[in-house]
């Protein structure tokens, strides 16, 4: 029994010594320490500060993906697509794209404008709009309208102007060009 008593104790001491050595070598190794020694509550607060941005960003990403997949893939339907799908569309809300037909624009009593949009091959849809058109709204510019179709007329509650990526001086004759093509 005397031998048995002594052996576990020396084994324990040996184990302690080894783990202590391990600890010391960990401490000497830079990889072991990268944050200050903190009490438990401060640690928890710190963890919250570190991980909460990920939760917020993950939610934001999910929201953007859902909205993006729901809207961006078929952002609008053209005039021709709309006319060929007329029977199946019902009164669902969608975005319609077309070019504002010149001389078709009249203001209506709803504070908006009535006009026609045309597609690529000249087919037209009449539009009754109830919203104030944006500043750039004018004939011959492509527009994207939000609304629904009813008996061949598109009832729009929002007009967005889809301007082109060309930039041309408004009064070219009054501007001297600095190199490049003449304006």
């Amino acid at each position: 029994m005397k031998e048995g008593d002594r052996t576990p104790l020396t084994q324990d001491r040996e184990r302690d010594r080894l783990s202590e050595q391990q600890e010391v070598s960990d401490l000497l190794n830079d990889r072991a320490i990268f944050e200050p020694p903190l009490p438990k509550r401060a640690k928890r607060r710190r963890a919250l500060k570190i991980w909460s941005p990920f939760v917020v960003l993950a939610l934001a990403l999910g929201f953007l993906l859902v909205r993006g997949l729901g809207n961006a893939l078929v952002y609008f339907r053209t005039v021709d697509e709309t006319l060929s799908m007329e029977a199946t569309l019902g009164t669902s809300t969608f975005r319609l794209e077309g070019v504002v037909v010149p001389q078709s624009v009249t203001t209506n009593n709803q504070g908006g404008v009535d006009f026609q949009v045309s597609g690529v091959d000249g087919r037209r849809i009449s539009v009754i709009d109830s919203a104030n058109p944006p500043q750039l709204f004018q004939a011959n510019l492509p527009v994207v309208l939000v609304g629904y179709l009813s008996h061949g007329t598109f009832y729009s509650n929002q007009i967005m102007v889809k301007h082109s990526s060309s930039y041309i001086a408004a009064h070219p004759s009054r501007v001297a060009s600095l190199g490049g093509k003449k304006l």
């Binding site: 570190i50 941005p53 960003l57 953007l64 809207n71 961006a72 952002y75 944006p134 929002q158 967005m160």
Partner: peptide, 29 residues
């Protein structure tokens, strides 16, 4: 807002740019 008539719309360019911002904010986090 003045050119199109809206501050924001869910078209592909705008949506993917917003995703870009979120992705790199995640990188910084």
């Amino acid at each position: 807002r003045p050119a199109w008539g809206v501050w924001w719309t869910w078209d592909a360019r705008l949506t993917t740019t917003a995703i870009l911002l979120v992705l790199y904010l995640g990188y910084l986090a």
